[in-house]
Amino acid sequence: MAGTLLALISLAVVAYLAVQGIEAEPEMDQRSYEHGYHAFAGSYVVTDEERAADEARCEELWGAFPSDELAGLKKDDWVAGCADYIERKDSRF
């Protein structure tokens, strides 16, 4: 009986934590991601086949845009969108 009760309580705690999103990733800013995803305006870009190298390339590109074009955008989400485009992944949105 005690073992069953402990199992039910454990299950309830795990379910509660899942609902609360303890391990969930922070929400991505859609506007920033999409601006990064479309940074190359549909051009073909050769991938480096390593995510870190593609992200580094996108971070360099981020610095090349005039600051007024990047106003209000989140750099990490913009870089993620840019790298996804380079790797030919479908947009997350």
Rank of each mutant, 00 (worst) to 15 (best):
L5H: 04
D29R: 03
M28L: 14
F93N: 09
S91Y: 04
S10L: 15
S43Q: 13
E27G: 10
Q20D: 12
G63A: 04
E60C: 03
R51A: 09
A71G: 08
L6A: 13
Y37H: 03
S32T: 01
T4Y: 11
I22V: 15
V13F: 15
E23D: 12
E23N: 11
W62M: 06
Y33I: 06
K89M: 06
S91P: 10
E59Y: 01
I86E: 02
S91F: 04
Y16A: 15
K75Q: 15
G42R: 05
E34G: 01
V13S: 09
L70S: 03
A24V: 01
A24G: 03
I22D: 06
S10K: 05
L61W: 06
A83H: 02
H35P: 00
R57G: 11
L6H: 06
Y37N: 03
A83I: 00
P66W: 07
V14D: 06
V46W: 02
R51F: 05
F65N: 07
L8H: 08
V79G: 05
S43C: 07
D76V: 03
M1L: 10
A15K: 05
V13Q: 07
W62V: 01
Q30K: 14
I9T: 07
W78T: 02
E25T: 08
F93G: 10
G21E: 04
V14C: 09
R92T: 06
A18Y: 09
E55S: 10
P26Y: 01
Y16V: 14
S10W: 06
Y37E: 01
A7T: 08
A24W: 05
G42M: 04
A56L: 02
F40V: 00
A83M: 03
Y44C: 00
V45W: 06
P26G: 01
D84N: 13
